[in-house]
Write a protein that binds this DNA or RNA. Structure first.
Lengths: 339, 339
DNA sequence: GTGAAAGCGCTAACAC
DNA sequence: GTGTTAGCGCTTTCAC
C-alpha cells in the first residue's frame, strides 16, 4: 500500500552530474545572475536528464521566497466564492504562487488557534473570502495576528473606514442595492420588499436606505437561507400577497427561488411581480425570463486581493483596483407595476 | 511593505519553557506514547502559552507524514468540479489533510515537467479532477510516474477495464445516458438528439448505444461549448426544426441554454420539445419548468477519491464506494411528443 | 521515559 | 563565477 520508491533526486545529484557544487545548481534554478552561460547550460541539462524537481518544503524552510497563499473560506461551491477563488488562482498562477485552500465549517466554533493552525506556518500568507460569521471571525483573527500577510475579500468593513483599504477588498454592494431599490421605486412600485441572504448586511442596508430616502417605511425584510430551496420556501408568504409588487433578493439563487414560488402561486413576472437578483450568475441572462440582477465582479476582486497581498509581501508598485464596479443589469423580470 | 516580525516560536522555545528536550515536545505534538502524563501536561501548557504552531514544511522535510493532497483541475467554477472539490475537501479536512489546488489552463500545452512541477515535491499525493484534454493528460502523466500517490476522478477510463479501479473513480454516465435516451424513446419520440459537451465522450456513447439498440440511426450530435450562452447558440438550429422533439444535453447548463433557445423560437416545453439535462444542478428542481435531468453525485465521488488516496498512502481498510449511482430524475421538461 | 545526534533539501552568507 | 559552511524546524534513530 505504501509508496516509498527510490529517494527523489536532489540538488546534490544534479550538482554531481553537472560537475558543479550544489550551490550553483541552486543559483540556476532560482535564475540568479553570476553563473556562466556554459555552466548554466550544463546544469540545466543535468536537471532535465535526472528529472529533478525542487522540493518546496525545503525551499520554504531554508527561507526562500514562500510563493504560496492559503485561502480560507467556508463554501467553495457558492457562486461568489467559487468566482473569487478563481480570480485568486488566476492571479496566483500568473505570479508563480501555489494556492492552498482551507475550508471551514460554517456551523462550527473555532478558536484562534484553530484558525492560525490552518496556515502552513506562522505568518504564512493568507486570503480570507469572508461571507459569514465564521469567515469574518477568521478574517479578524488573521488580520490582528499577522496584518502584514493577510488580505480579505467580501467581508463587511470593520468600521475603520479607509484604514481597512490596505487589506480588505470589497465591492460596494450597499450603493448598488440602493440603486436597484430606487430603480423599482422609480417605475412606480409603492415599496420594495427584501429577501435577505445571511451575512450580507450591506445589501440590506442599501435597500433600507433607499426606501428611507424616498420617505417610505421599510417593510420587514424576510430572511432566507442560501439555497434556492430555502428561498422558495421563505418567499411563499411574500408571493402570496397581492400587495407585494417588487422583491429585491440577496442573490440570484434567492431570486430563482422567488421566481419558482411566484410561478407556483400563479403570479406572473414581471406583470404581477418584479424580481431583482444579485450577483449576475451566468445563467441569469438565459433564464426564462432573463433575470434583472446586479453584476458583481467577484473574479476581479479575487485577482485584486491577490495583487494586494503580493504587494504587501514583496512591495513593488501599488496595485490599482482592477475590478468592475457593481452595476444593475435590467432584464426581463422587472417592470412597472400593473395599474 | 515587508512583513518580517519576530522569529516565530519553535519547538525549542517550547522545550525551554517546559524544561524538557525539543524531542519530548515533538513527541507531545505527535501524540506519541512514552511521555509521562505530567510532562505532557507541562509541554501542552507551554505550547498554549507561547502560541506555538508546528511548521509544516519542516515537518514534511524531516520525513513526517505528509498530510496534504494537491488537486489538479482546470475550472473550479464548473458545477461538477466545484462539487467534486468540495467532496475532496470535506474528506481531507476530516482526515486532517490540507488541500492544495493547482489550476491548469485548458488552452495551454503542458509538458510532463510542467505537471510534475505542480506538486509540492516529488511523489506528493495528487488527485486529478479530469474532464478535458489537459486534465486527462495530467491524470495520465501522474498515474504513470507515481501510481502509488495518484488518484483521479471524472476521467474516462484508460481502457484497462477493471485494472483502473484502484486509482480512477468515475460515475457510470454512459449507462445513465442510455437510460435517459430510452426513457424519451419509450414515451414515443421517434429519435433523440444530443447536444454534446466537450470531453464527456461516455455520455455521447451511451446516447448512441441506446439509439442503436432501438434500431434507430443516430442523428448527428451537435457540439456545444461549456457555457449556457454557447449552448443557446449551438442549439438554435435544433430548436428551429419541428422534427426535433427531444434533446438530451451534456449537462444542465446546456439544457438551460436549449430551454432559452426554445423559448425564443416559440417552441413550448415539454409540449413541442422535451429537454433532458445532466448533473442535476441545485437550480434544476426550481427552474420554471423544473428540469428533467440526471443526478450525479460529484461530492460523493470527491470523497471517494480522497478515501481511495488515503488508503493507497496509509493502508487501512479497503474503502468502499460511498457515492450514489447516477439516476434519471424526471421532472417537467420532458413528456410524450405531441401527436 | 527522556535526551542527544544526525539529517531531510534547500538558500543565505561568506569565502575564494 | 563558483565553492564552502551553516543553518531553517522538524522527525528519525539510537543512546541512556
Amino acid at each position: 500500500m505504501s509508496a516509498a520508491g527510490p529517494r527523489p533526486v536532489s540538488i546534490f545529484d544534479v550538482a554531481k552530474l553537472a560537475g558543479v557544487s550544489h550551490q550553483t545548481v541552486s543559483r540556476v534554478i532560482n535564475d540568479a545572475p553570476m553563473v556562466a552561460d556554459a555552466t548554466r547550460a550544463r546544469v540545466k541539462a543535468a536537471i532535465a536528464d535526472l528529472g529533478y524537481r525542487p522540493n518546496r518544503s525545503a525551499r520554504a524552510l531554508a527561507g526562500g521566497a514562500v510563493r504560496s497563499v492559503t485561502v480560507l473560506t467556508t463554501d467553495t461551491s457558492l457562486y461568489g466564492t467559487a468566482e473569487t477563488l478563481r480570480g485568486i488562482e488566476d492571479a496566483a498562477r500568473a505570479a508563480g504562487f501555489s494556492v492552498l485552500i482551507s475550508v471551514m465549517d460554517p456551523d462550527q466554533d473555532y478558536s484562534e488557534a484553530d484558525i492560525l493552525g490552518r496556515l502552513s506556518h506562522d505568518g504564512a500568507a493568507a486570503i480570507v473570502i469572508a461571507h459569514d460569521e465564521v469567515t469574518t471571525y477568521a478574517m479578524r483573527v488573521l488580520h490582528e495576528r499577522q496584518p502584514g500577510t493577510t488580505v480579505a475579500t467580501g467581508g463587511e468593513h470593520l468600521g475603520n473606514g479607509d484604514r481597512d483599504a490596505d487589506w480588505l477588498i470589497s465591492l460596494d454592494d450597499r450603493t448598488v442595492a440602493a440603486r436597484a431599490t430606487r430603480y423599482l421605486l422609480d417605475m412606480g412600485h409603492r415599496t420594495v420588499h427584501y429577501l435577505a441572504i445571511p451575512g450580507k448586511a450591506s445589501r440590506r442596508t442599501g435597500w433600507a436606505e433607499a426606501l428611507a430616502a424616498a420617505g417610505i417605511t421599510a417593510p420587514e425584510a424576510v430572511d432566507s437561507g442560501w439555497s434556492v430551496a430555502a428561498a422558495a420556501e421563505a418567499a411563499t408568504g411574500l408571493v402570496a400577497d397581492p400587495a407585494v409588487t417588487a422583491i429585491l433578493c440577496g442573490n440570484d439563487d434567492l431570486a430563482f427561488g422567488v421566481l419558482h414560488a411566484a410561478h407556483r402561486a400563479g403570479r406572473s413576472v414581471p406583470g404581477d411581480l418584479s424580481v431583482v437578483g444579485f450577483d449576475d450568475y451566468p445563467l441569469a441572462a438565459y433564464h426564462v425570463p432573463p433575470l434583472t440582477t446586479v453584476d458583481l465582479d467577484f473574479r476581479g476582486v479575487g485577482r485584486g486581493a491577490f495583487d494586494l497581498l503580493r504587494y504587501k509581501l514583496e512591495g513593488g508598485s501599488d496595485p490599482r483596483p482592477s475590478w468592475r464596479s457593481p452595476e444593475l443589469v435590467v432584464r426581463e423580470t422587472s417592470g412597472p407595476p400593473r395599474q
